[in-house]
Design a protein around this nucleic acid. Structure first.
Lengths: 332, 332
DNA sequence: CTGAAAGCGCTTACAG
DNA sequence: CTGAAAGCGCTTACAG
């Protein structure tokens, strides 16, 4: 035992301020509704007792948690970092308690985190990945809103705020053709989203050029460290590619470093395109051509959806397409 | 309104399984204590009703939350990413619910997050930064354990698990002297930890060489993007430094990129040393000399401390020094 | 503007 | 191994 005395509760503050617990509760949740003189006494009593409201009890009694769970796969090397930081900031400043959960790439951990979030009766779960059918059913039975970001699944569990990865792949293909590239090398991860971008790219590329790109695979998340192997493996190709399409800006950065170490110039000898428009894309030398996704817009839409849900309103729209933009820079 | 019916509760499961709520509760928390036949009925009832325990009510009744709050400044470019991921993984798999909080660099947000954590009656708060006096007093009155990691303050609020940043600075100085460097350029952020590393470096350097290093400042977190300005500013120095001491591996990476873009060879024309031994330190070309901190050890000690605290034991030790190691690589 | 009291959904000592 | 019942610390409709 730590020997610390019990935490003061509403009752202790009430006694100290000589009011009822109901009045202290009202003051804590909305100071404006109690009389000035009473408020002053309560404030003093809270200060004196060191009272910290018990949110567990409060949420239980009021039947709402004002908590939002945000699930991300990784801290570092994530396509979502900028968006998530922005979203967490906005959620926090509008009075929500954010519970960040680290899922890794394991479905088991995702499952566990979703259950924990539901058990704490969160208002919403924001996830960068899809949920499997069993879990979807479970979520569907609760009052918690499921928000998937960065993708537009055909039949979203709750609501989806994202863009078409297939279209992004197509756009990249068109862009490379327009720049005169002939031998693209496509580096893809095993995630459903990467696979759809790849499909979009392949469809469009083959349609426009009647040729077939070479390919390589990397693990999720696609990061800087993968570049060494990917680059080294190029020598097994019959012809060296003239452009490498990466699943993230970090990987693109790694490819540039490897290319330069091998004496190649980017983009003269080899073009490189990233994905996600992470901060480093604009900071690397050469700066990295990438696909930008409007993280601010996503954050805003997430906020709006949660607010509507908290206010008990329905959603006319289940999917919001925020689009994307190809940002041409020096690396291509 | 969503039109969803009320979430099923213990009572619904109990009725369905024809037992008391007490028994269902026991089953949920420890399946082994109920008879096999009863357990089977309850399991079926839970399945049928889609019951998800209300952790808010459970924690309130049992007076323990099994929640741990982990406070970090940023997602990306953080010295702590590897350690935090590891820690979160271990905490989660040993039955704790982890609440990740994003503090940014603002004390106000840190304050708010600490209050939220305390209000939810977390067992412990793990933080990569110190807490101000008022908040420390507040935390001290609760049953929540404060754990500061990556530093060893003189008088820790709860317990501290880290290392001496001053010693790290001194070690770097000795190392550079031993490698024959003469004109170090020290890039420091405004954080207390960076400042102490700087002080250690300066003390040792001046003692050994009787010369004074040049310096530059960057914002926290020290990241890749800062490199451009830092490097450009070198031309204002009377003599070009022969080695740059960076506050993070990301910044070191940026310096290497800038140096190469300017036609300098690392380490022949310019040495670079990072800090934190992030994954990229071993992956960059050239690989980056850095200070390694044993994140696995820190994670383990954090786990042990939380476990002891949850079991009501006292701490004989308030500060645990996990040390650090200088990893010499190609960049120096 | 304020108070008395019921209720939120669990847990757990106690008794059997 | 199981049940009846008190209690965890709040909130809030109702009444004044």
């Amino acid at each position: 035992m730590t020997g610390k005395k019990q935490a003061p509760k509403l009752e202790d503050v009430a006694r100290e301020a000589d009011v009822s617990t109901a009045t202290v509760s009202r003051f804590v949740n909305n100071p404006a509704v109690v009389a000035k003189a009473t408020a002053d006494r309560i404030r003093a009593a809270i200060e004196k007792t060191g009272y910290i409201p018990n949110a567990l009890a409060g949420d239980l009694a009021s039947q709402r948690s004002r908590m939002v769970a945000v699930l991300i796969p990784h801290l570092e090397n994530s396509l979502f970092s900028d968006m998530i930081e922005r979203m967490v900031g906005e959620l926090t400043s509008s009075g929500n308690n954010v519970m960040l959960g680290l899922t890794g790439t394991s479905q088991k951990r995702t499952d566990a985190l979703v259950r924990v979030a539901l058990a704490r009766r969160v208002d919403a779960i924001v996830s960068t990945g899809p949920v499997d059918d069993d879990l979807a059913r479970l979520v569907g039975r609760t009052r918690s809103l499921w928000i998937e970001v960065w993708d537009l699944p055909d039949n979203p569990v709750g609501i989806a705020i994202g863009f078409s990865h297939q279209d992004a792949g197509r756009d990249i293909a068109r862009f490379l053709v327009s720049r005169g590239y002939r031998r693209p090398h496509l580096v893809t991860a095993d995630s459903p989203r990467s696979q759809r971008r790849k499909q979009g790219f392949l469809d469009e590329w083959m349609e426009l050029t009647s040729s077939v790109p070479t390919e390589a695979h990397v693990d999720v998340p696609t990061r800087f460290g993968h570049a060494r192997r990917v680059f080294a493996d190029l020598r097994h190709l019959e012809e060296r590619p003239d452009v490498i399409i990466c699943g993230s800006d970090h990987l693109a950065q790694g490819i540039i470093v490897e290319a330069q170490a091998a004496g190649l110039k980017v983009p003269d000898d080899l073009g490189v395109i990233g994905f996600g428009n992470n901060q480093i894309a604009g900071e690397m030398r050469p700066t990295i051509t990438s696909i930008d996704v409007d993280g601010e817009r996503i954050a805003r839409e997430v906020m709006a959806a949660i607010k509507r849900h908290q206010e008990g309103q329905d959603f006319p729209v289940r999917a919001i397409d925020v689009g994307f933009r190809l940002i041409a820079r020096e690396s291509i």
